[in-house]
Design a protein around this nucleic acid. Structure first.
Lengths: 228, 228
DNA sequence: TGTATAGTCAACAATGGTGTACACTACTGG
DNA sequence: CCAGTAGTGTACACCATTGTTGACTATACA
């Protein structure tokens, strides 16, 4: 008995026979996401994923020929899901206003990250996996929206859109992980989310320096326009 | 021939005989840092580290009895090194001024991260490894300095020190990784560092929203004091 | 009814890792 | 010159994982 999920000796007892290949694929991807979010793409094993998905290892190999295929499919799936869950209902949300308001965007991003720590982790791992120049639709769209916001006159004209997008995105997605390690109960986690949103809002509104004692800096950076 | 580094048949040719155990320990740690920074702590193997360090596997096991010991020792070493390299000469830098100026601090942090992408990666992996409530001296000190800065009157009184520390630290350390993936040559990387520092300074000075069109937000957040 | 599909189960070779052990060597200091 | 220390080279038992193959089964569909 080199490989066995339960202790069924006869091979005829094939319970759990799913007719829908797409659903098992999803289950495998979901399990893959969970293990990927834990330790990163390099320490993802097909065996582990199959166990977690409650699926035979052979089945996993039918869907994803190699380990690499599985990790790639998973990160792609993560990207799609993030985009979908974040921008899926964006049109109806923003059509009421010509521009999606900054505070709601911040709130929404933070809430999303808090409610989807696994997706956040997976995304961050993807960013950190040296190979990956991130070209996923989520990032692209986020930058695009921010640029529109800047152009609309609601945002400062001199912000470096890409850098600011990076700062807000990375910290918002990393925060829940930090919080998960520090905050015990869900009430405490809610509070931490509040703190993050508030601080981020305060930062985007006012910055962090007392202007009256930084006249020299104000002059140096106040005159600067957005970099090329 | 289960294990062989070169093709030396006789076991007498033991070149590379280091008398200083501390130096080989460092070499092992350095190699461990490199592989840890690559794929995270979970996919660090003693074999791999020993190979990279140019050291016999047995030697590695003499210094670090188990794989876990090695990873823990490495993360601890990372923490020490970051603290040392960042705050090692801090006193002499700040004694000229009563408070270390904000722009120099930002510049310094960003430059450090750019020059030490591996340390940055390792630190981030540590933050991301669920278990780890980060208690390392670097983080503690960073928060402490920021708190002092706030109290000094140079920073805004209403900033949430911990959250702001988290935002600036995480984004500054993650940025070089992002850049490393996107920027090809060193000139381009220098430029990217400049962009980050400038944008971070702009953000801390002015925020990102056009105040004139956010009067409602200004009122909501302007009255808020720092959370408990 | 029969055939294709999706999945189960078991086995296998190959690879690479862990942790331990032991004999051996080279360098150092007393 | 001798003992101790640091490191080498090799072997071994054990385990997990990969990727493959082949036999089998339940379901869907034509």
């Amino acid at each position: 008995m080199s490989e066995s999920s339960k202790s069924s000796k006869s091979p005829n007892s094939s319970r759990r026979n799913n007719t829908d290949p797409e659903s098992t694929r999803k289950e495998i991807l979901q399990a893959a996401l969970e293990v990927l979010a834990k330790d990163g793409p390099e320490s993802l094993s097909v065996t582990q994923v199959a166990r977690l998905a409650g699926v035979n290892r052979g089945t996993a190999y039918q869907h994803f020929p190699t380990r690499e295929d599985l990790t790639h499919a998973t990160t792609a799936w993560v990207s799609e899901r993030i985009y979908e869950e974040f921008y899926g209902d964006f049109e109806e949300l923003s059509e009421k206003n010509e521009v999606y308001p900054a505070d709601l965007a911040q709130e929404r991003l933070s809430e999303f990250a808090m409610n989807n720590p696994e997706l956040s982790r997976a995304w961050l791992f993807d960013v950190m996996s040296t190979k990956g120049v991130v070209t996923d639709p989520f990032w692209t769209r986020y930058v695009k929206e921010l640029e529109a916001f800047r152009k609309s006159g609601y945002g400062r004209q001199d912000i470096d859109v890409e850098v600011f997008a990076f700062i807000s995105l990375s910290s918002a997605l990393l925060w829940p992980i930090w919080v998960g390690a520090h905050a015990k109960n869900s009430k405490s986690r809610k509070k931490m989310q509040r703190r993050f949103v508030d601080e981020m809002m305060r930062l985007t509104l006012f910055g962090s320096l007392e202007p009256s004692v930084h006249t020299e800096l104000l002059e140096r950076f106040g005159k600067t326009t957005a970099p090329d």
